[in-house]
Simulated scan of single mutants.
Amino acid sequence: MIAGGLTGLVGLAGLTAAGLTVLRRRGTYLAAGHALARPDDLDPLPSVLRRGLGGLTVPATPGPRGELFLGPGAPQPGRTLRRLVLTPLFAKARGNNGRLARDQQVPFRLVVEITGAVRDAETLLRAYRVLDQQLRDHAALLSHCDGGELVPGAVTVSVTGIVDVRELLAAQDLRYAFAEGTFDDLGSRAAPATLVPMISEAWNRRFGWDGLEPIPAEERHLLHAMVRSAHDDGRTVRISGLPTGSRQARAAIRAELGAAGVDVIADQDQRGLVRYLRKHPVSRWVEREPLPTRAVRRGSPRPHAPRTERRREAV
């Protein structure tokens, strides 16, 4: 009986060790995975970090004193972007030597989508100024643009939605946020990669393929050509809004995005996206410039990669 019990314990220990190995393997940081928070999600960040996704788009509504609030209905105390997203996100990075995960090689992409019924220019301007100040409180961990040069950090923040921040950002020599772009911005002098480093579009804006049949040759050619042009322009590409349908159809579309070199796939279906990316990695990043850590002191310039390479790494 004792021998049998010991054998069982050994077997259990082996299964436990194997399980831990699987958990560790599944904990890889998914730079290509991007979560789209639902408007009614009051606390979207924990699940994103737990699953190792490399980015989050969160809708936020301007409220009293310029604060940005999450969730539906009237702004409620405590439901601010600062409290629910910014503070815990940067606290995690600080506690992990300037990274959100040990194998993080590119910045976490946080997209703040300003929404709501308010269209008053002064209110929207105040909201951006408040956000800008909140970001500067975490300057050491943020990707930023300094004198036209992109410098990577643990987190890259982009602003989109009902407020057009491009003129505000362009006027800042040192900025800690960027604007979202579309494929229409490619080659634009008014929207350089230092201002609009990421192209972000919904799939159905230019494509009609739903993944059920083989992709039309014309759409495949267009997808590959636009992604290649974006990369040549020094920008990354994020595609969202995949058609709802069967798992097989969505997997087919994700596979085409990966084959075309799309850097980031955004989806509300976090579980499905994680499951797919674990089996089929989309982006195979090569780190050329390590992310800064809290120990970094920049009293003197340090060597950089060539500018065209660094710009892509930084976003």
Rank of each mutant, 00 (worst) to 15 (best):
V157F: 09
G261A: 03
G116Q: 00
R311V: 15
P303K: 05
L56K: 11
Y128Q: 12
A190S: 11
A35V: 15
A35Q: 02
A17C: 15
E256M: 01
H304T: 15
L56F: 08
D132K: 09
Q268M: 11
G27Y: 04
A259F: 01
P292K: 00
V163A: 12
V159R: 00
E219M: 02
R79Y: 06
R275D: 10
P301G: 05
R288M: 10
R175Y: 10
R278A: 00
R136C: 00
A117D: 14
L81D: 01
A139W: 05
V315R: 06
G148L: 09
L12G: 02
A31S: 08
D184S: 05
P290H: 12
L131F: 08
D120S: 09
T7Q: 07
L56P: 00
G52Q: 03
R310P: 01
D146Q: 14
R235P: 01
H221Y: 12
L291I: 08
D210R: 09
P72F: 06
K279N: 01
H304C: 13
A217N: 12
Q270E: 13
S283V: 14
G78I: 05
R310A: 08
Y29Q: 05
V274D: 03
L86S: 07
D164P: 03
V165M: 02
S246N: 11
V286K: 11
V151F: 02
P303Y: 00
L20W: 14
R220G: 12
A179S: 15
R284V: 10
P107R: 07
R65T: 10
L42N: 08
V58C: 11
H231Q: 09
L68H: 08
E256V: 04
A251D: 15
L36S: 07
L222A: 13
R307C: 09
P303H: 01
L150T: 04
L15Q: 09
R312E: 07
R175C: 10
G258E: 03
L68D: 00
E309T: 14
G147M: 03
R302D: 02
D263V: 12
I253N: 02
V296N: 07
V262G: 02
L89G: 02
R51G: 13
A230Q: 06
R166V: 10
G299K: 13
V159E: 02
G181L: 03
R302K: 12
A179Y: 04
A217K: 11
D185F: 01
I114G: 04
A177Q: 07
F178K: 01
L68M: 08
T236H: 04
R278K: 13
A259E: 10
M226Y: 04
R275W: 15
R102A: 12
L257G: 06
L242D: 05
L42D: 04
T28G: 14
L212A: 09
E180T: 03
V165G: 04
G11E: 13
A260W: 01
E256N: 04
A93L: 09
S229C: 05
V48R: 03
P107F: 00
R310F: 06
R25Y: 12
A3L: 14
G33Q: 03
